[in-house]
């Protein structure tokens, strides 16, 4: 009996010695990943702006948006969104609302030399905390003023903490990007291959 017990204990210890490293081994994807801003390469979108004394029109991908009239009064609704634009200093202040609630507030400014355009967008998501998106664009052509072709060269988001988290768990993955305009998600993995670590 004692011998049998010793044998069992020995077997258990041997099993544990082999099993523990397996338990400790983690999926190499899992964990926090810190963004290295020095490696960032960004090729932003290009837009065309046609501005006059009454307001401006933005064209993206050859498709012109509705003209934004900047007289301080609410514009006609477009897809349920009411835009109110006012001239402010060297630019514009635009507020978009839906069902009486603010969606975002945008401040657009031109640099004194007319070569840079900055947009600061305060966004109020219906199901999240407000945050601020700031973009800078450089002039490719046109002018003076806002009219011309602009290329976005940088963007920052106030809630971007620079940390990506990934956790692969069987057939699903929890995923949170550094920019929290995209929430934590868990979704079924489509698996044509085995992931590293599985």
């Amino acid at each position: 009996m004692t011998k049998m017990c010793r044998t069992s204990l020995c077997a258990l210890a041997t099993f544990a010695a082999f099993a523990l490293p397996c338990v400790a081994q983690q999926n190499p994807w899992n964990g926090s990943w810190k963004l290295d801003r020095s490696t960032l390469k960004y090729d932003g979108p290009t837009v065309s702006v046609a501005a006059d004394d009454s307001g401006f029109t933005v064209t993206r991908g050859g498709k012109a948006g509705p003209k934004v009239v900047c007289d301080g009064k609410p514009n006609a609704p477009d897809n349920g969104v009411i835009t109110t634009c006012s001239k402010s200093g060297s630019g514009y202040e635009v507020e978009n609302t839906r069902d009486g609630k603010q969606i975002n507030k945008i401040k657009i400014e031109l640099s004194p030399d007319g070569k840079k355009l900055s947009r600061t967008i305060d966004i109020t998501p219906p199901d999240g905390s407000p945050y601020t998106l700031t973009t800078t664009s450089k002039r490719l052509s046109g002018g003076p003023g806002f009219s011309g072709v602009w290329k976005e060269t940088s963007f920052t988001e106030s809630q971007d903490n620079g940390v990506l988290t990934i956790e692969v768990k069987g057939d699903s993955v929890d995923f949170k990007e550094t920019r929290s305009r995209l929430p934590v998600s868990s979704t079924a993995l489509q698996r044509p291959h085995r992931l590293a670590g599985q």
Partner: peptide, 14 residues
């Protein structure tokens, strides 16, 4: 499109 952009960046394990 209609506002195409590309971005690349590297993350380090923390």
């Amino acid at each position: 499109a209609p506002s195409p952009s590309t971005m690349s960046v590297t993350f380090h394990k923390s």
